[in-house]
Computed example of a mutant assay.
Amino acid sequence: MAPLPIPESIRDFANYELHVRQAIRSAMQLRASAAADPQAAFDGYAQAGLLDVPPVWYEMPLYYKGNRFSCIGHDQTVEWPDFAEKMDYELELAVVIGRPLRNATPKEAMDAIFGYTIFNDFSARDMQSRETSFRMGPAKGKDFDTGNAFGPCIVTPDEIGDPYKLRMRVRINGEELVDTVSGGMQHDIAKCICHVSRSETLYPGEILGMGTLGNGCGYESLSFLRAGDVVELEVEKIGILRNTLGHRR
């Protein structure tokens, strides 16, 4: 099971510029692929500035809210949703809130962290690309049973040390695809927590994903998972979160 089978809430940030830039480009490529002339459509998106990172991303932490009832843990199977064709994983570090706080200072924000865990934000990229064309979401691109994998445990801050120096890796079917570190966030952990707590109370058991690292998902290279793939996310001092993607129905 997940270390928090039903968290109080799930929020997930977009916090690493390389990932954001590459994901935006991939989203536009997917959208253009449905046009009569995909290259012309993609060029039009580029000319319209749709490949650029919106300035607001640099100004404040941005996040979406996930489905807290869809959590699974280590060695559990991820269901392939019946509306999806392109499934993906995401390499993320997450924090678990341990005390109530509102309008937090940076120190109060860090003091409120109960611990850290690994978050694999499984995603139906074709659905996500369609629904975000309306400038809302993601919704069903992220919301399906078993879509949020956490674990294998929660590690308290005293054992983590510096959360920006953790080695983070991805393996698919035993092949290592990513070997990186947790540093390089546009907005640090304290700022993310402070932002959420503005005029809003956070409660123990809420989970905040700190965002997918650059090259930390298949979306960025338009390479997607296949049924039966085994995805392992490893974060130094936390462990390995392993999940298998089920077969399409």
Rank of each mutant, 00 (worst) to 15 (best):
Q39C: 04
I172M: 11
E232T: 13
P5W: 04
S199A: 05
V170T: 12
G161R: 05
R25A: 14
G174I: 11
D88F: 07
A36F: 04
G115P: 02
A32M: 07
F150D: 00
N67T: 12
K86F: 05
L241K: 04
E59M: 11
S9F: 00
L50T: 08
Q39V: 07
F150Q: 00
R68F: 01
V56M: 09
P100Q: 09
Y58C: 02
S9P: 07
I207G: 06
G216Y: 06
Y164H: 15
M28N: 10
S33H: 02
D121N: 09
R11E: 01
E92C: 08
I189Q: 08
R68H: 09
L222R: 12
I10T: 10
A190D: 13
F13V: 13
M1S: 15
S133T: 10
A94K: 06
L225E: 01
L166G: 14
Q39D: 15
L50E: 12
M1F: 08
N67Y: 09
T77Q: 14
R130Y: 10
N120Q: 00
E236T: 06
A34E: 13
K140S: 07
A84Y: 00
T212S: 08
N243W: 03
T146S: 15
N103M: 11
W57S: 11
G161D: 04
H74T: 02
E79A: 13
G137W: 04
E79K: 14
T180F: 08
M127I: 14
V96P: 01
L50F: 11
R249P: 14
R135F: 11
V178E: 10
S70Q: 15
V78P: 00
E206S: 09
Q22D: 11
L50K: 10
T180N: 15
S197A: 10
E108M: 01
C194Q: 13
I97R: 02
E59P: 06
D188Q: 08
P3Y: 05
G228A: 05
R125G: 05
E8S: 09
R167F: 07
G147D: 04
R99G: 00
R125A: 03
S197I: 01
V181E: 15
L222N: 02
Y203K: 05
V155W: 09
F83E: 06
G216N: 06
T132G: 07
D121Y: 03
S182R: 09
H247K: 13
H247I: 12
D43N: 10
K65Q: 11
D162A: 14
F134Q: 10
S197Q: 01
D188T: 07
E200D: 01
R167T: 13
E85D: 12
G239Y: 06
F13A: 15
P54L: 07
A48S: 07
Y219Q: 10
